[in-house]
């Protein structure tokens, strides 16, 4: 997949991005390219700026210095800062997805599972109840939630089901880029394993580009093609996942890798 790197346009290009909470910088001088179909893992300990970076990229925080370009069909790479707010929000609703760590942040808890999936369709102008419902049913099947749960509130779902529902809700408009913040956080290991299988299948089938923030190196190894290691707001090492994990160069990455639990 690296052969056509030089000629292909990246889907997302980030240069010298930074963000500060008041005087306290949370991430600094982050630059990278993300290519179509690529899964980029961002790892690091708590407080290293991973989630802030993700929020900046996905437009949930107004970014500080630096630029983010996105390949918006058909006009090619555009600087997100030059888009109007309406265009940015449309992009977020259709071409992007955001899977939150806590499904309660990403789901509408007061409406049924079907409506949660259908919301994006209605937001882009779908006005046919039957169509919306059948698409929602297809997606529930896709994420392995029984159709008999379609009209139940997400409140009555288990954590793993809520997370799967959140994924379905994001993928229903066929986004090209998905941001995931600790998608397996708070789930027990067997549910985690199922969710990882599901994610891997969805990502491959739809050749999604994903930016995945996690502190769990095992998750990163399973899903990510490339890794970026962050410490104190800076990227200290990046490369292919296996390369970074098997032959860590930076002392901090070495510490991270050696801290992994072996069962």
């Amino acid at each position: 997949m690296n052969d056509d790197r030089d000629t292909a346009t990246p889907l997302l290009r980030v240069s010298d991005l930074g963000y500060s909470y008041g005087q306290r910088p949370a991430c600094r001088e982050v630059s990278f390219d993300l290519y179509p179909g690529e899964v980029l893992g961002i790892v690091g300990e708590s407080g290293s700026g991973k989630s802030t970076l993700l929020s900046c990229l996905s437009g949930r925080l107004d970014s500080g210095p630096g630029h983010v370009w996105y390949d918006r069909r058909p006009d090619g790479l555009v600087d997100l800062a030059t888009l109007s707010e309406a265009e940015r929000r449309l992009l977020m609703r259709t071409d992007w997805g955001v899977v939150q760590q806590n499904p309660r942040d990403g789901l509408r808890m007061g409406v049924s599972a079907g409506a949660n999936i259908g919301e994006r369709l209605m937001a882009v102008g779908d006005r046919h109840f039957g169509t919306i419902r059948s698409v929602a049913a297809d997606w529930l099947t896709e994420v392995e939630i029984g159709l008999d749960r379609m009209d139940d509130l997400p409140l009555s779902f288990s954590g793993g089901m809520q997370q799967r529902l959140q994924i379905a809700r994001n993928l229903v408009t066929g986004p090209r880029l998905v941001f995931m913040d600790e998608p397996t956080g708070g789930l027990d290991v067997s549910v985690q394993a199922k969710l990882l299988d599901l994610l891997r299948r969805l990502v491959t089938d739809r050749s999604l580009s994903v930016i995945l923030v996690t502190h769990d190196l095992a998750v990163a190894r399973l899903l990510a093609h490339r890794l970026m290691v962050m410490k104190e707001g800076r990227v200290v090492e990046d490369g292919l996942t296996d390369q970074v994990l098997d032959d860590p160069h930076h002392p901090y990455t070495q510490l991270l890798v050696s801290s992994m639990l072996q069962v």
Binding site: E85, A86, R89, R93, R108, V111, S112, G114, A115, G118, E119, R120, M122, A123, V124, R127, F129, I132, D151
Partner: peptide, 22 residues
């Protein structure tokens, strides 16, 4: 207010969808 400004009215139909489901 932002939703009005940008005409993001998808959620109104979510409510009607819930009605039909129930």
């Amino acid at each position: 207010r932002k939703m009005h400004a940008l005409q993001e009215y998808g959620v109104m139909h979510v409510k009607l969808y819930e009605d039909i489901v129930r």
